[in-house]
Design a protein around this nucleic acid. Structure first.
Length: 271
DNA sequence: CGAGCAACCTGCATGC
DNA sequence: TGCATGCAGGTTGCTC
């Protein structure tokens, strides 16, 4: 489900309801996520104040007084602030119940998501240690991308979706950024000129910023933590539009599978 | 080492 | 109506 803009939208939506609050207790109804949820989670964290809620790539990081929770929404995960007395539905796997009657509820039908407990600083965690730079930071720039792409035969689309290269760029925004940059998604990363890679760097930032501004992309059921959908779908140029005319030149958009993922592009605008 | 792909899981749309 | 098939916003870990 969520790429970086949706995770960031979620973070902004839920933070005011839980940061600086005390965690009363945790209800775990289903431990079988991508990795099993720590069986002692409630004992370890109950009574602690949530100091901070931040994001690294597509991970949400809950900083408590003596430990952290790393939460990943996978493909189908979502978080909502609910009233404690709202009955849990199917696939509502975990509640973080805060003092004051509100709970943060994790729903994840496919269970590709993860909830990881750690006492070590998150940046040292195995899941975060190898992540590339944040796409909206200055560390992600043309020099960096040019250097990384040098000599690589991998397609540029699967390349920018690799979290070791840059985090947060999923299938939707990879398609969109490549359209904006006029680069064919199957082109080898090492066979793109410096100027075009510089453009791509900017297009990735631009599309992610715009999506965050619109509250993310709602395809089916994404909401922001208070139940509101995102509006970036209206600005999608290629994703989900195979066969329809290119917004720029009217040529029918093509679809091809790249790394098992639907890839849509304009055969005329993207080279 | 790099590149490709199956696997994890459920829900939904489609076609017969 | 039922059933089979394929696809979905992500990531890991296997094979070649």
């Amino acid at each position: 489900m969520p790429e970086l803009p949706e995770v960031e939208t979620t973070r902004r939506g839920i933070a005011p309801h839980c940061v600086a609050r005390t965690l009363e207790h945790i209800v775990v109804r289903e431990r079988r996520l991508r990795w099993p949820v720590d069986a002692q989670l409630n004992r370890r964290l109950a009574g602690q104040r949530l100091q901070q809620l931040y994001r690294r790539g597509k991970y949400l990081i809950f900083e408590f007084e003596s430990a952290w929770l790393l939460l990943h929404l996978g493909m189908s995960g979502s978080l909502r602030i609910v009233s404690t007395d709202l009955p849990a539905q199917k696939h509502d796997h975990v509640d973080l119940v805060f003092a004051g009657g509100k709970a943060l509820r994790l729903r994840d039908p496919r269970r590709f998501g993860a909830l990881l407990y750690t006492r070590r600083p998150p940046e040292q965690h195995d899941r975060l240690r190898h992540l590339g730079p944040e796409p909206l930071s200055d560390d992600f720039n043309d020099h960096y991308l040019i250097e990384k792409c040098t000599g690589r035969k991998q397609s540029i689309k699967t390349f920018i979706m690799d979290s070791r290269i840059v985090v947060g760029v999923g299938n939707i925004y990879a398609n969109e950024a490549l359209f904006l940059a006029g680069i064919h998604p199957a082109r080898a990363a090492g066979r793109i000129g410096r100027a075009r890679l510089a453009t791509l760097t900017e297009c990735i930032k631009q599309v992610l910023r715009a999506a965050i501004q619109q509250g993310g992309t709602t395809l089916r059921d994404f909401t922001d933590g208070e139940g509101k959908p995102g509006y970036f779908k209206q600005q999608l140029n290629v994703y989900g539009r195979a066969g329809l005319p290119c917004p720029r030149c009217q040529t029918p958009l093509k679809e091809q599978r790249l790394g098992q993922r639907a890839t849509v592009y304009c055969p005329r605008c993207q080279r």
